[in-house]
Design a protein around this nucleic acid. Sequence first.
DNA 1: TCAATCTTGACGAGATCTCTTCAAACCGGG
DNA 2: CCCGGTTTGAAGAGATCTCGTCAAGATTGA
Lengths: 337, 337
Amino acid sequence: MGKPTARDLAVAAGVSLSTVDRVLNNRGGVTEDKERRVLDCARRLGIDRALNQRPARTLRIAVLLQAPDNPFHAAVQANFEAANRDFPHYNLQFRIHHIDPARPAMTVDLVNALSATSDGLVVVSPQNDAVAAALRAFGRGGKPVMTFATDIRDAGRYAYVGPDNRKAGRVAGDLMGRLLGREGGDVVVISGMLSMIGHEEREMGFRAVLRERYPRCRVADVLESMERGERAGDLVFAALKSNPRIRGIYNASAGAQPVVDAMKALGKRDAVVFITHELTEDRRRLLREGMIDAIIDQDPALEVRTAVEALAARFGRRDGPPASLVTPIHIHMIENG
Amino acid sequence: MGKPTARDLAVAAGVSLSTVDRVLNNRGGVTEDKERRVLDCARRLGIDRALNQRPARTLRIAVLLQAPDNPFHAAVQANFEAANRDFPHYNLQFRIHHIDPARPAMTVDLVNALSATSDGLVVVSPQNDAVAAALRAFGRGGKPVMTFATDIRDAGRYAYVGPDNRKAGRVAGDLMGRLLGREGGDVVVISGMLSMIGHEEREMGFRAVLRERYPRCRVADVLESMERGERAGDLVFAALKSNPRIRGIYNASAGAQPVVDAMKALGKRDAVVFITHELTEDRRRLLREGMIDAIIDQDPALEVRTAVEALAARFGRRDGPPASLVTPIHIHMIENG
DNA sequence: TCAATCTTGACGAGATCTCTTCAAACCGGG
DNA sequence: CCCGGTTTGAAGAGATCTCGTCAAGATTGA
């Protein structure tokens, strides 16, 4: 038997030759379900033209995250913007919207406004009941809501894409325990905003490991930097000054340089173990210079790619879902920075 | 202007319509350079059929490595075998040949025999002058020789794909220094075969870091397991028994379970830091059980993929070379095993 | 050198695709 | 129910592709 022809495809999909032609040549005027049926059959029949076929309809995905003063959010934003170019075959259009995590009411308004113009949502936001309710409402029509990097409870989300933050915290905790060694010591935890589920989970994981395996280490304080690097530095400065027994700092959030500066100002850089997250360029430099002892990294590029693939799968523009929606955690130290 | 037609392509590539047709329909009877020219022009003209085009000629790549009793080599072998299925668009055929690292003469004979039937070579082998000469001869006709996981000097290789082994050793050394803490202590290094350049480099990197930054740590012994796990266990047993000051073991080679058994037999599991390579299933289990303190991993799947892409690029079956031929190094500890 | 084989181009018949036109069916809103 | 717009299918003309056949070089090996 020869290779499958357009006529075979028409029969298989139960449509006319004309419709097949319209779909295969992206000529429009075909309802979505019929188009999908034709493309599905084409893939099954092994008609390669269908593989690179760019779906006619552009799906608009709104991405909600805070302004990119935080380098992690900057990387996420850049990668989502790049995704508009990098995945032409999915024909998804990502539009960035900045939200202020401290103003949930504005986020709610934005979500409500977007439900008219967006086919899906990617959200990085702290836990908040009103926001969760707005997301549930958005998803009511069958549109996917994806939480990203930090989960949101009761949002009726389609999926969470990002690291297992509890595990990330446990990795940090274990490293802290091991690097502090036999003597142990007091540890200060700086969290971004504990209302970010991801940050809360990191902190819980961190504490859990110390409790389970490193009884000589004690979490002396858990402080919130409100995602402001300067504030993180100030908190560390104050903590180190008031409590000389502090031997470890775990900063799960913004502000690497300010923390290093605080340690240096008190002449304690070498006496304290400093562990943080996100391998950005400036942190990589600090790591190589020995100013940071370990960085727990989630790969934003991979996370965005995973999110894109998962959304494409959700919209039937990809065969199956990605292997895993939980993205890996990497340890970086001075020699593999 | 309309979309480019086969006639345009014929003009652009400077061949007849017939030849274009033969290439586009994989009908054979076209020389390689003409085929490449047609496909290149097709890509440039944006003729999508050419993208998924499987090249007509199957290129035979011989993969030379030792028998898969070592789990790393087993993983490499499995991944190369899988590559025969996973990269149909490159149409490369990988054939595995087992060599005995202790019998270079046999390797030489094999390389000479393969030069008649293979279009390229991937080699995992210890350094040896006769082998290097044979590889140089193989490459004389323009066929690529790729060293993999461990480099070979003076082999006239086209590329080395694998981790930066010196860096891998430095990562291990830094971890050892940090985990041993202030007190430091004696460390035993078990290498597979020091004639494997990669193993030599690991050992050098490991020692260099201890020398530079951890003066309290001393490399008491460098032993060769000859890639036999049992022997690694015996060496560790003997070393621990004869030198009670040993507080660290760095095994850059086969034998995780035997080493753990040796430590346990002497009641020293908790008194000694054990660092090794390769996150295989059984090592992952040992890591989770706390029997191994850290594993430095190179991802064999990624390495093989990189090798395949690099070869495809070399044969003009891919746009550019992969971003990096140096594959990353990952640290795994109990919480991110 | 000669014969066999391979490569390339030309040609043409039929298959297949592309695109336009037209009409019937469908659908939502007055 | 009617109206305007959209979706679907049918048909046909021409463009384009597919594939077999043939012949003229080119290459190779004896």
